[in-house]
């Protein structure tokens, strides 16, 4: 007898993806979009890791990130789960494997009633010195994101992209090069890539990045010498920042904070920067195509690799991915999960 279809025990609810018992009651959620009982968290981004759950299960790194963001009492109970360590809830075996998205980001592998479901969370396949690389796991149902699921997204080599900043610094040595980068993951990856490209001078960071950069360094990721960019008088240009690299959350770029930068050259590090018109509209002078999500080819290649019977799509541009999969003869469905943002990437 063939095993029951996994939709008998895992399904999307209004509160997020949930594993349910025989009576239809949730045993636990994955990245619940509102406060809940037991939640497995794939990674530390705010839309996936929300405060206020009773019991959080995640990698030790993700738990540390949640604590840094929400304080020590972000949940009543926490269970750290190391890579490939198995735990059991009801009749479901759970283990985590790296997703390559940000520090601690995990895919959740669920084995139950003879089937395997992989919830990949957000993931990428391009190299990233700040987190463990994505591990493909063969499965029956692969649950994927679709943030950049359009044929127009083909993200270039990250080191080639980052070297453009160094070229620009040589060309405009008097301008502060300010990079807008999401504060968890992207900012640290930009710094690590700059170090890889041979940039050794101190890098100036916005106050909002301080805690998370420290956390990355505590986890053994070398970010080199970092200095606060926030000292000095408000609203007055700081000549010391001329010709330096400054990193700030994207929202700070158009805020009063940026007035302290001398003749700033605005750089934005994001996968969205691939579309020139879109980059132009956001007032960016130098778009840096650097994404923490899989691009179109990587999404399709990953699905080929894990070779599932079915693909479920959580959020993003699911119509294009559905179409491409149907052309390949792969069964796919869109879960239309609400509450995960992708514009901050």
């Amino acid at each position: 007898m063939s095993p029951p279809h996994p939709s008998r025990w895992i399904r999307p609810l209004a509160s997020g993806l949930a594993v349910i018992d025989g009576m239809g009651a949730p045993r636990f959620h994955i990245d619940a979009t509102r406060a809940n009982e037991t939640v497995i968290v794939t990674h530390g981004h705010a839309d996936h890791a929300r405060p206020g759950h009773k019991h959080v299960i995640a990698t030790p790194e993700t738990l540390a990130i949640m604590e840094a963001r929400y304080g020590a009492r972000f949940a009543e109970q926490v269970t750290p789960l190391n890579w490939h360590e198995t735990m059991r809830i009801g009749d479901v075996d759970i283990h985590l494997v790296p997703a390559g998205h940000v520090l601690g980001s995990a895919q959740i592998v669920l084995d139950s009633q003879g089937s395997r479901v992989v919830v990949s969370g957000d993931y990428k396949r391009k190299p990233d010195p700040t987190c463990a690389a994505f591990e493909p796991v063969a499965c029956d149902i692969f649950i994927t994101e679709a943030t950049f699921a359009l044929p127009v997204f083909s993200h270039p080599d990250p080191l080639t992209e980052i070297s453009r900043i160094l070229t620009s610094l040589a060309l405009f040595p008097a301008r502060a090069h300010v990079i807008g980068a999401y504060s968890l993951g992207k900012a640290q990856r930009v710094i690590a890539l700059l170090r890889q490209a041979g940039y050794e001078a101190p890098i100036f960071i916005h106050g909002a990045l301080q805690k998370l950069c420290q956390l990355y360094q505590d986890h053994g990721i070398d970010l080199g010498k970092l200095e606060p960019a926030t000292s000095g008088q408000k609203g007055m240009p700081q000549p010391a920042l001329a010709g330096q690299i400054v990193i700030a959350p994207p929202s700070a770029l158009s805020d009063r904070w940026s007035r302290r930068l001398p003749d700033p050259l605005i750089i934005m590090a994001s996968g969205w920067m691939q579309v020139k018109q879109r980059a132009k509209q956001s007032g960016v002078e130098m778009p840096l195509i650097l994404s923490d999500h899989a691009d179109w080819n990587d999404l399709l290649a990953t699905i080929d690799e894990v070779d599932p019977k079915e693909v479920w799509i959580t959020h993003g541009r699911e119509d294009a991915l559905m179409r491409a999969l149907s052309l390949k003869g792969v069964t796919a469905k869109a879960l239309h999960l609400i509450g995960y943002e992708d514009d901050a990437e």
Binding site: L150, V152, R278, D319, A320, R323, A324
Partner: peptide, 9 residues
Amino acid sequence: LFAISYDFV
């Protein structure tokens, strides 16, 4: 797929 892409870009 082209139509979806063009619509986005």
